[in-house]
Nucleic acid binder design. Structure first.
Lengths: 354, 354
DNA sequence: CCTCGTTTTGGTATCGCTACCATGTCTCCC
DNA sequence: GGGAGACATGGTAGCGATACCAAAACGAGG
């Protein structure tokens, strides 16, 4: 009449469980749980004993079980669009790291920027049980996608939007200040005839960068009107813009492109015309993408801590979802992180000032 | 004496569980489980009914519970080193996608290529409960790291190693064939004076590519000795190699660099010397990394399906771990996937043959 | 000394799912 | 006809952890 002996379901060596630790430490599983999760109401003595046991046995909590019991283990989505952003790599590293830390799963979904495609992507996310979504650029600018996600009652964190959207959480750098700083740097080097290549018009970051540039020019005063061309953040568009900027005399002595890909295009075009960078023409970019260090001369640019931003986005998402479940108000949070100007070889004093 | 009414632990609306589906479909939870997991021994009629119910209720299985119950949910590690590999982004996408499909967690760990650093990284992985590791290049070449991991009884899949290591599973392309194909392409264009830049000497892929190049030259016969320089897969090393190749007359009419970064360096140096690519000098690379399409002219190169390879690596890992638990022999598997030559603008017929 | 409140610990009932076994039902073949 | 086998379904008992409650230990105040 005794219970049948239960043989371990999987033949393999089981891993250390909370019970093993409890037995080893001579306390109950609950106490171990409290210690491991940093709960209060544990005496220092027990805490020491338990931690000792944990270390001895090499215990690491089973995420699945923990998630199941605590009804946690939400899935977070990462909706990415144009992978031209060499963002993606670093972004993923940061996001995945944070996800692992919180014990949530990260679900990737690719999405074109058409309404139909975004609707499909959102449906897939919903089907995947996702409760919150990180939106890296350029998707974070799409009101359509945000609306679509909001309709599915998802939390959203937009990353690196130029201006924080009113309807979502957001983590970004200060594009305005960064562009202003970079422009001031060029002016300090002695450049006076500047060229600027704008970013894609439907991304708010483009406008912030442009405003930062304009502000620095304004503050400096006494300068000829800068020459401005429209770009679209692609290499090709940068090439077109560079051709226009370098076709009319007097040539600018420095060109500020709104991202690195376009700056690389400017350098390519300059070389083609026999202009030497940085001496004949200074070129600076924005983003510090992979290409920046992998061309010659290296590109002076603005570095964004992408991995950190992605990580914080996931943090915010987790906090919002867990907080929200406990009824805390989910007011949109906007977090700004520090950027950094990276000085490489592509900008120097102009010939005239040498 | 009746059981206390259990109030749902989290105030929030519970999600649909397998029981809900079972009740709705009028079958037992077990049957639902079998349908959802594609098990056998379910009649078509019941299967239809259940799938209908699943769709109606928008049921999505709880991963945590599933993993817990089936003692699955292993964690897989992804040990990455030199992020110069613009591989990483695509690699992560592929790996994460596969991980999500299998319901395993992916743990990222960065690691320098020194013995001390790798030991530390492995220890962190072990502590994280990781049971298998994907090794993208260049870490997959490090015998030290492989030994270290093996000592911790982890399964390993090396990705894109030139020659499959004897002690690990492996997924890669045929570097030899790809390089041979590319060289044949150059020869078919009419080039006769070729230059070659080798990759990092401690990566087996370098040698395979070099052998492929040499084989094509050999097969063609009747050619002047190609000029060869040593590179290290970095932009900078490519620049040095290019300087040497372009310093001695007669100049080569085509240069094959063992990766894209070095090819980009060749193009930069060529431009600096007033050589026009592709008409004065054809340049081809290998990898189809981001930079290949983002320089001008676009780089003709070999495309590796990185995401796919990463995905297959995770698949293999999961299969090995789960199979291994059931006692299946874990013989090392080597899988080769197809590469593709991408023709862009950086290679054309030589002037002399025009 | 007893009550009250706070700190510390343990017991029990799940979380949602699947492994394993038991039970039927139906066909096949000696 | 009846035993063997394939097929189809249901019941039960956990996986490893936490939530919730109860109980024990302790100190303070009346």
């Amino acid at each position: 009449m005794n219970k049948p002996v239960r043989k371990s379901r999987s033949g393999a060596r089981r891993s250390v469980t909370i019970k093993d630790v409890a037995r080893y430490a001579g306390v109950s599983p609950m106490t171990v749980s409290r210690v491991v999760n940093g709960g209060q109401y544990v005496s220092d003595a027990t805490r020491q004993t338990v931690m000792q046991a944990v270390r001895q046995l090499g215990y690491s909590p089973n995420l699945a079980a923990r998630n199941l019991a605590s009804a946690r283990g939400e899935r977070m989505g990462l909706l990415y669009g144009n992978p031209s952003a060499s963002y993606l790599s670093e972004f993923l590293v940061g996001a995945l790291d944070a996800a692992t830390r919180h014990g949530v799963q990260l679900v990737l979904e690719k999405c074109e920027m058409t309404p139909a495609a975004s609707r499909r992507a959102v449906r897939r996310l919903v089907a995947g049980g996702v409760v919150g979504v990180v939106l890296p650029p350029p998707l974070c600018e799409s009101a359509v996608i945000r609306a679509e996600l909001q309709a599915a009652r998802m939390r959203i964190v937009a990353v690196a939007a130029g201006r924080p959207p009113a309807d979502a959480m957001c983590v970004s750098i200060d594009d305005f200040a960064a562009a202003r700083e970079m422009t001031q740097y060029l002016l300090a080097l002695g450049h006076t005839r500047l060229g600027f290549i704008k970013g894609h018009p439907n991304q708010t970051a483009s406008e912030e960068r442009w405003r930062g540039f304009a502000a620095a020019i304004e503050e400096h005063g006494q300068l000829p009107q800068p020459r401005v061309e429209q770009g679209f953040f692609t290499f090709r568009s940068g090439l077109d813009a560079a051709r226009k900027l370098l076709a009319v005399e007097p040539l600018p002595t420095a060109i500020f492109a709104s991202n690195d890909d376009m700056a690389a295009a400017v350098m390519a075009e300059a070389h083609r015309r026999g202009l030497e960078v940085p001496n004949d023409l200074a070129v600076v970019g924005f983003d510090d993408s992979l290409i920046a260090a992998n061309i010659w001369p290296g590109l002076t640019t603005i570095h964004q801590p992408i991995a950190q931003m992605a990580g914080e986005a996931v943090d915010m998402l987790v906090a919002a979802v867990r907080g929200g479940r406990r009824g805390a108000a989910a007011e949109p949070v906007h977090r700004q992180v520090a950027h950094e100007m990276i000085t490489r070889e592509s900008a120097a004093r102009p010939r005239s000032a040498a």
